[in-house]
Write a protein that binds this DNA or RNA. Structure first.
Lengths: 351, 351
DNA sequence: TTTAGCACTTGTTGTTGACAAGTGCTAATT
DNA sequence: AATTAGCACTTGTCAACAACAAGTGCTAAA
């Protein structure tokens, strides 16, 4: 599996050439780039094919990288790359400074991401399975609406409005709100969810009937699965790989069902950046695509993920540093908004 | 512009045939369907073409309906159609009965719509320009979050969470909340929006600085434009008209930007159902599509719109009664949830 | 008024041949 | 021993062409 320098160089050039043109790369082209005869290149490419890094669409075509080829490239070439200062500055300018809402911040970051890369980008709100309840608020609105607000320990807020006649007598709302907090504060979402039936049966048996649907709705809130926001999907139509209606269909399916996007958030290595190339996504619909995600964390807790969907021949050299920088900035802004003290200290030291 | 019965019949058959096959309809096919010789049909079709109801893609092809052709069809053939009882029953079964949230109800209806028609469907939350404030609530969450909740007179709830250190001292939240209600209750959204700058300058000049961003965020909330939920977009990929990547691109653009979908909600005739065929949408991207919308109203106020996007050769005969029935059911459910007394009265009488 | 018949137009499909791009292998070169 | 020139071979693309199918408008007869 060890590659000598020349093979490395050839693999690198094939990948970058194919990334740029979407055309299989032949020996003649490489011979010009590398100052070797085409015959030599052919020998080397045959070797790289045997090693599993390149493949041929058909006998008389040039080579294209395999998933393993891209994987090698991402692992060996990209790691240390960063954006140029002026690229960073231009992103800084795009990210507005005075946004009070996390949601707007994240949407903005996602939009910048797709605009800068010309691929599709997305954001996923986190699964809240392993959060604990920090606070529950019940707010009566008008005559027959009740808003249930849930604050999780990672700072996430979920809310829902239920409509019903006499959902709860006015005077009971506050009392019941206190009771809920007393009972549930500090508890794990998952635990509440698992024990909701006995809870209703044992504790609420003899209270107002109207409370049960409320509790069920609260429970719904606990399990609301993550939401996905997609931007720049139409960028993808320019890609030659989506000319095939099969591939296009798969892409749209991913974008529409969003299941794969949600699932991928759950997997991944330790770092905040994860790259899934083709089959590595383990979704058949995504086998011709690459997804790169950046998990946002505050105090070690996930608070959201942004990501990029592009073709396997994605411009890794540009995209990875870009998502890294945007993700870092986003994280920084969110931490600042959250009022984390560490962040303030660091800031002061810098100035 | 008057059509004799035979022309009507021919136009009708052409439309239904083309709807079914997406292939231009020739005289031979019609001659079999109608028991007339192909030559006669050809004469009649030439007349219908002169009248603007049919056109030919090229000299040697059959005829396809023009926008005017479909318009005539929709205006003259469809109006009185309704679903069969068993079709209604099957929709009733799909619409769940015990949903407390409007949002879930609407999403459900939208999904049923696309599943039943095999086109794309969508829902648009209403513009809130002409609403008035019924209530404003400020809710402190945790240490540095504040939720702003806005209840409009049409029953719509908008809310947002802002994150900031010391956004407002605890003790002031309630006082300021009262003040906001005192000032703004009953006011028109648009008026508040237009007068926010003088309001801040005159009224809030000498109060806590942290209030200004809060007011601006409230203002944002007032103008948040409508949200769009799309379902079944991938259904559309099966359509032969989307084989052309030009058309596909336009469709995706509509789905992604959503501008056209939002705009169309604002136009339309008096009734709750509106049909926009091709150019009638006045969006170039939509000129090969038809959109049908159903405006939900409660007490004469719009509370949302559901719609269908399909090809111009949409199956009007099926789709119009379907969206009508689903829209009616949705409306009924929402009115019931809202606790309207009329609805209850009606129910009692029926039983 | 309707229809049979026919010449005409246009799009589709399949074949063929020329050509371009690229390969692997062998033998000569460095 | 590594590199390269040369060549036979494979495959995909493109343009031209012919055969054909579908449908029309028009004329003249029923």
């Amino acid at each position: 599996m060890k590659l000598d320098d020349r093979k490395k160089k050839i693999l690198e050039v094939v990948i970058e050439e194919y990334t740029a043109t979407a055309e299989p790369v032949g020996s003649l082209k490489l011979s010009k780039d590398l100052g070797l005869s085409s015959a030599t290149i052919r020998n080397e490419m045959a070797a790289l094919e045997k090693l599993g890094f390149l493949e041929q669409p058909h006998t008389s075509a040039g080579r294209i990288p395999t998933t393993e080829g891209y994987r090698w490239y991402v692992d060996h070439i990209i790691n240390e790359k960063t954006l140029l200062p002026k690229e960073k500055a231009s992103i800084d300018k795009m990210l507005s400074d005075d946004v009070l809402r996390f949601e707007s911040l994240i949407k903005e970051a996602t939009q910048i991401l797709s605009r800068l890369t010309n691929y599709a980008s997305y954001a996923v709100s986190p699964e809240i399975d392993d959060c604990t309840v920090e606070e529950i608020k019940l707010v009566k609105l008008g005559k027959n609406k009740l808003m249930i607000i849930l604050l999780a320990d990672n700072g996430l807020v979920k809310e829902t409005v239920i409509n019903n006649e006499n959902v709860l007598p006015d005077e009971n709302v506050e009392a019941f709100n206190n009771y809920l907090n007393y009972k549930l504060k500090g508890m794990n979402f998952r635990d509440i969810y698992d024990n909701i039936t006995p809870f209703i049966e044992n504790e609420l048996n003899n209270i107002n009937d109207n409370i049960v649907p409320l509790i069920l709705e609260l429970n719904n809130l606990l399990t609301t699965n993550s939401e996905v926001y997609v931007d720049g999907a139409s960028n993808m139509l320019a890609l030659p790989e989506l000319k095939k209606s099969e591939t296009l269909k798969k892409f749209l399916n991913v974008i529409e069902t969003k299941d794969a996007l949600k699932e991928l958030v759950k997997t991944g290595y330790d770092g905040n950046i994860n790259v899934y190339i083709g089959q590595e996504t383990s979704f058949d619909d995504l086998k011709d695509f690459t997804i790169i995600t950046y998990k946002q964390k505050i105090n070690e807790k996930e608070v959201g993920t942004i990501g990029i969907i592009g073709p396997k021949r994605m411009d890794y050299k540009k995209v990875i540093p870009t998502i890294k920088y945007i993700g870092d900035m986003l994280q920084e802004k969110m931490e600042k908004k959250r009022g984390g003290k560490k962040e303030n200290d660091r800031k002061r030291k810098r100035e």
